[in-house]
Amino acid sequence: MAQIFRPSANLLAKSSIVGGAILVAALGFGLDTLFRSPYNTNVRVARDQPVPFSHKHHVAGIGIDCRYCHTSVEKAAFAGIPPTETCMSCHSQIWSDAPMLEPVRESFRSGKPLQWTRVHDLPQFVYFNHSIHVTKGMGCAVCHGRVDQMPLMYQENTLFMEWCLDCHRQPEKYIRPKDKVFEMGYKPAEDQSVLGARLVQEYKVRKLTDCAVCHR
C-alpha cells in the first residue's frame, strides 16, 4: 500500500501548527476589534430621533445651561429628559409653525410623550448616579464629550467597564472645580496633575473600585 502522507506533508503539519496559532490570534484580535468598533458601541454614531434636536444650536448657539432641560442632574440618579412642556416654553412662541417641530406640538396637544431614542444606554445591572458625579466635580463633557458641538446627539465614549474604571482608579486626571462642571469648553487653569490632586483631597473623592459600588 502506498504511503498516505508524502514527505512534503511534514511541512504542512508544521506550518499548520503555526498557522493555527496565528488563526486563533487573528480571530481573537478580529472579535476584539469588532467588539470595540462603533458597530457594537455606537460611539460617534448619530442616532435617529423623532425630532432632529440639535444640542449644538441650543447650547453653543443660544447658551442654554444643561440644567434648563436636564433639571434633576444635580439631585437624582437620572439627569432627566425634559417633558414636552419644556420645549414648548420657547417653541409655543418661536418656530411655532416649523414642520420639523410638528411632533413636539402633536405631543403637547395629545399628552403623548415624544419617544426619543436613548443614546447612552447602560446595562441594567449597572448602578449609575448623575448627582454624585456632578456634585463632586465631574464635568458633563468628561463623559458626554463636547455636546455643544453635536448637531445630532451621539455617544462620545464606549461606556465599557474599563472606561468607568479608568476614572474611578485615577479621578485626579479628570476632576475639575465644582463651578466648572457645566462648562463645555473647560480647560484647567493650572497643571491638571497639581489641580486634580488638590481637588480630589478638597472634595473628598474616594477611589471607588469595589465591584459592589456599581453592581449592587
Binding site: 443660544i62 447658551g63 442654554i64 412662541q93 418661536i94
Partner: peptide
C-alpha cells in the same frame, strides 16, 4: 437665575436674553 431665567430675562434682568434676540416676545 442664570440657568432658568437668563435665556429670556438676560443676565441683569433687562429682558434682553438670547431667546428674545431670536424672536421671543
Amino acid at each position: 437665575y442664570n440657568i432658568y431665567c437668563t435665556p429670556c430675562h438676560g443676565m441683569a434682568g433687562y429682558g434682553d436674553g438670547m431667546v428674545v434676540s431670536r424672536g421671543f416676545k
